[in-house]
């Protein structure tokens, strides 16, 4: 394994629910190596999605430090975070989160609209990303014209189109049948093994977790093993 892409030290996240403080993450320390396919497991409410969101820069820790590629993500302001996410992180959601009124091609192209790429460069990137997930022939389809598995593969193409170092996936197979789940997990593993991307995947499913090169478990906001 190469150098760490993610370094987490004494990370805590405490939510306020009325008068009660709920500890979602409790002083977690964790290193994730570059190119690793990490499966993050745990029961509901264990804090695994919260950890993923903090690493991806869409939530902020209450205490502690989370460095991604040496950058303390929590110290970036909203605009800096938006740019950082666009350039460094690809997202895959359980519910795919494609924009329903845009075609597969347009959905994949979205993150590139925030770069300085011209139209031709964007086209090349989008076509490559769709080819990687095996959906080049579905470019003009709207999400509703695709199966769940295809939608998730379009979402993966969108996640990798900017060539980010880190891909985060939150229950990416949670809404898929077993065949589609296998396809999606295969694509994520390929990204890690062949393209050298760091993939962090949150999952309940041990079979899905087995696709990862490492598994860690969270229990009540703490790492259990």
């Amino acid at each position: 394994m190469s150098a760490n892409i993610v370094t987490i030290r004494s990370l805590s996240k405490i939510y306020q629910q009325g008068d009660i403080n709920v500890t979602a993450l409790d002083k977690i320390s964790l290193d994730i190596a570059s190119g690793e396919f990490l499966s993050l497991m745990g029961p509901s409410g264990s804090g695994k999605s919260t950890l993923l969101h903090i690493i991806a820069g869409i939530d902020r820790p209450t205490k502690g430090e989370c460095r991604v590629q040496g950058i303390d993500v929590a110290k970036l302001n909203e605009s800096q975070l938006a740019d950082w996410r666009n350039q460094n992180v690809g997202f895959v959601f359980q519910t795919f989160n494609l924009i329903p009124v845009l075609t597969a091609y347009e959905n994949v192209e979205l993150p590139l609209l925030l770069t300085r790429m011209n139209r031709a460069e964007r086209r090349k990137q989008v076509e490559t990303a769709l080819e990687i997930v095996g959906l080049a022939d579905r470019a003009k389809h709207l999400p509703k014209q695709l199966s769940g598995g295809q939608e998730q593969r379009v979402a993966i193409a969108r996640a990798l189109v900017t060539d980010p170092a880190l891909v985060v996936a939150d229950e990416p197979t949670g809404n898929l049948d077993s065949h589609s789940a296998q396809e999606v997990l295969g694509v994520l593993r390929t990204l890690s093994h062949d393209a050298g991307k760091t993939v962090i995947m949150v999952t309940h499913d041990p079979k899905a977790a087995a696709f990862g090169s490492r598994q860690i478990h969270l229990e009540k906001g703490e790492l259990s093993k």
Binding site: S79, D83, N86, Q87, N97, I99, L114
Partner: peptide, 9 residues
């Protein structure tokens, strides 16, 4: 989702 992808407010 758009915000996550990097689109600003």
């Amino acid at each position: 989702t758009l915000r996550v992808l990097g689109f600003r407010r």
